[in-house]
Each structure stands twice: as structure tokens, then as C-alpha cells.
């Protein structure tokens, strides 16, 4: 695989400043996205995966604020750019996002054409004909006919709307597309179609995807590398083979999540589960944040600050058990 890094994230920190205190939703996150790969991000709700997605576009949801770190696109830190520059040069031009629940991303009172055109007009100067041509081109790319342009969102099925939102994310030829749970609201058959579409687009346009979901089974199908997040940090980051291969994941949290995932073609007597709930990120547990729920916890887990280390090439883990010391 081509190892060229398209996006580099260094020590990214995003905090929510709430009345209850400072919520450390994304805490010193570092990772890369390479050309033509899909990086999967999994974790439970509240682990910071969506927050991280919005941070990559430099548009945290208030009361959230990016308080530290770097997001390098082509070696340039987009956090240092002004809002206007980000809007003009980065958002949708370099990095775009397909939001959770595509059905709610489209305005019910405008036709698809009007909504699609808006993105183009904001970013590019082009004639009406050219804009139309481009819209049709991208609709075809996601497998939709031209007459969809004249339709209103309520006339379309969930799968169609999802395709339109994906088309709009691709419009300006970004290099990285962040997909935040693009298939959760869809039925299995439609979900499989959308997954096929994303794989196809990745191949055709040599795009990179960041695929955010809570579903480990979907990641196995779409992502080349998988980043498992827990409580705002990376628990494990490895290739598809490392996580889903025969030897299984290294981190106890990932192991437990896998054991909690029901399999279609296996008779399982009892699924595993993780006791307790994810921690409150105002006052996260000391040391390893997973230690209060971990089944193989040791003394030092709650004591020592935990690093993320490479245990084999391309496989990073944050767990004392996995380090040979």
C-alpha cells in the first residue's frame, strides 16, 4: 500500500466547556490517514469519535473548543488558518464529511438540484450548464439517474438520500471524506449497497475515508486500518488483519467488544459483555481509562500514565499487558 500521508493529526485535544466542568472529549489523539485507505474509527457512544470528526474540519460544536494539537494537511496546520481560509481552502475542498443520519441533512423545502448547486456556487465559479453537468456526473457516480435533481427529499428513499449526501461530499474532489455512521439508519440490504458504493468510489477516485461507526462488523468490511477509541483516547490502532485476523485484537477492550458481537453463522451460548459504563470525562479515571471495567486489570493500570506503543509494525496498543517489560 502507498504510504503517503494525506492527513496527519498530532496530539489533538478538544474539550467541551460545560457547567459541570471541562469534558475532555478528545484527549491527545495522534494518527495519520494515508492515500487511498479507509481508516475505521470505532467505539461506544460518547467515546469522542464524532467529536473527533468535527474537529478534523475545524468546526467543533459549541461549547467544544480545540485546545491543542495540530491537524496537518499537506504539511500545513489547518488549525492555524483563519475561519475564512479554512472554509475556502480546506472544508469540502480537502476534507469533507458525510454526516450521521443523511435523511436529516437535506432541507425538505428545496429540490435536490438547488441543494446540490449551493455547494458548487459557494466554492467554484461556474456556468449553469457546467454546474448541471457536474451534478449529473456525480449523481451517476453514486448510481442515481438525472431526474432525481427535480425531486424533493421526501420523495426519495433513505438509501437514495444517503447517496445524494455522499455525492455532495465528493463534489469538490476532496482527498479525505469523513463518514460518520453513514449506514446506521439504513436497512441491511441498503447498507450493503452503500458499503459497496464507498468501496467502489475509493477505488475509482483513490480517495481516503475516515469511517466512523460503533459497529465492529461493518468496520471489518470497509476499513483497511481500524482505530478503537475509548474515553477520548486511542485504545488500539491496527490493520484489519490485526484486529479481525485469527490471533485477534491485542487490547482487552477490543477483545471484549469482539466477544460481545453476535455472529450470524455461529451458535453462541452466551455473549460477553463489559460491566459498568464508560467513564465521565470530566474526571476520567487515572492511568488507563479502561481499568475500572477491565477483566485483566493489574496494579499499575490505575497508577501509571499509559503510553500508546507499537507492538508490531502498524499495530499500536495502549495497554500495559501488551508491552513486554
Amino acid at each position: 500500500m502507498d504510504k503517503e500521508r494525506i492527513l496527519e493529526v498530532r496530539d489533538l485535544e478538544l474539550h467541551y466547556f460545560t457547567r459541570k466542568g471541562v469534558v475532555r472529549a478528545v484527549d491527545k489523539l495522534s494518527f495519520d490517514v494515508r492515500r487511498g485507505e479507509t481508516l475505521g474509527v470505532v467505539g461506544e457512544s460518547g467515546c469522542g469519535k464524532t467529536t473527533m470528526g468535527t474537529a478534523l474540519l475545524n468546526m467543533p460544536t459549541p461549547p467544544g473548543r480545540i485546545v491543542g494539537g495540530q491537524i496537518l494537511v499537506d504539511g500545513q496546520d489547518i488549525l492555524k488558518l483563519s475561519e475564512t481560509e479554512v472554509r475556502r481552502r480546506v472544508r469540502w475542498e480537502q476534507i469533507s464529511m458525510v454526516f450521521q443520519g443523511a435523511m436529516n441533512c437535506l432541507t425538505p423545502v428545496y429540490t435536490i438540484e438547488k441543494q446540490m448547486k449551493e455547494t458548487l456556487q459557494q466554492h467554484r465559479e461556474m456556468s449553469k450548464e457546467e454546474a448541471k453537468r457536474r451534478m449529473v456526473q456525480y449523481l451517476n457516480l453514486v448510481g442515481l439517474p438525472e431526474h432525481i435533481l427535480k425531486r424533493y427529499p421526501h420523495e426519495l428513499s433513505g438509501g437514495m438520500k444517503q447517496r445524494i449526501v455522499i455525492a455532495m461530499g465528493l463534489f469538490l474532489e476532496p482527498r479525505v471524506v469523513i463518514c460518520d455512521e453513514p449506514t446506521t439508519a439504513l436497512d441491511v440490504v441498503v447498507q450493503a449497497q452503500i458499503i459497496n458504493l464507498l468501496k467502489d468510489l475509493k477505488e475509482q477516485l483513490s480517495l481516503s475515508f475516515i469511517f466512523i461507526t460503533h459497529d465492529l462488523s461493518i468496520e471489518a468490511e470497509v476499513s483497511d486500518r481500524i482505530m478503537v477509541m475509548y474515553a477520548g483516547r486511542i485504545a488500539e490502532l491496527g490493520t484489519n488483519e490485526h484486529i479481525y485476523g485469527p490471533q485477534g485484537p491485542a487490547h482487552p477492550y477490543t477483545q471484549r467488544l469482539m466477544a460481545a458481537t453476535p455472529r450470524l453463522h455461529e451458535e453462541v451460548e452466551e455473549l460477553a459483555f463489559i460491566p459498568g459504563t464508560p467513564p465521565d470525562l470530566v474526571e476520567p479515571p487515572s492511568g488507563c481509562r479502561f481499568h475500572p471495567r477491565c477483566h485483566v486489570v493489574m496494579d499499575r493500570c490505575s497508577r501509571d500514565e499509559l503510553p500508546l506503543r507499537e507492538i508490531e509494525p502498524d499495530h499500536l496498543v495502549a495497554c500495559w499487558r501488551c508491552f513486554n517489560e
Binding site: T38, V188, V189, Q191, A192, I195, K199, D215, L216, S217, I218, E219, A220, E221, V222, S223, D224, N240, E241, I243, Y244, G245, M258, T261, R263, L264, H265
Partner: peptide
């Protein structure tokens, strides 16, 4: 259409 957590399907 169901996804399964098995590697090698990417």
C-alpha cells in the same frame, strides 16, 4: 447483506 467481523473482506 449482513456484515461479519471477519478479516479479508475489505
Amino acid at each position: 447483506a449482513v456484515c461479519e467481523p471477519v478479516s479479508g473482506k475489505v
